[in-house]
Amino acid sequence: MSMANANKAMRNVRIMRDVKARKGVLNNEVARRAYLYVARNTTLPPQVRHQAQLQLNTFDKYSRPTTVKNRCSETGRGRGIISEFALCRFQFRLRALHGELNGVRKACW
C-alpha cells in the first residue's frame, strides 16, 4: 500500500510531501497522543506537563496531522478538492464525463 502511494507521489512534489506527512502522522500518532494526554491533563503537576509539552515540540514537522492536506491525486492541486474521489473539481469533471467514476453522472432536469 505505502509503496503504491509513494509511486503515485512521484508525479508531483506536493503530493510527495503530503504522502511524507501522512506516513509521519501514522508512525508518530500514538506517541504524540500520549504526550498530548500528559500535557493537557490539568490534574498532573505543572512540571510534568511542561516536560511533555517540550517533548511534543521535538516531533518532526511531518508528524502533525494538521500538515496533511487533501490534494488532487491526479494533478496535486490543493484547492477545490472533492475528497471522496481525491480529485480537484476539473479532474473530477473530466473523469465523470468519461464515465470513470461509479455512480456519478451529469445532472439533468
Binding site: M1, N27, R33, Y37, R40, V68, S73
Partner: peptide, 24 residues
C-alpha cells in the same frame, strides 16, 4: 477538570490518512 481524556478517546487518524491517495 481537563483530564486530557479526549486525546486518548479519539480514534487514530493515521491509518485512514495513509490510504487517501489511490493505488497506482
Amino acid at each position: 477538570l481537563r483530564t486530557g481524556a479526549k486525546y486518548l478517546r479519539a480514534r487514530l487518524r493515521g491509518p485512514s490518512m495513509v490510504n487517501y491517495y489511490p493505488q497506482v
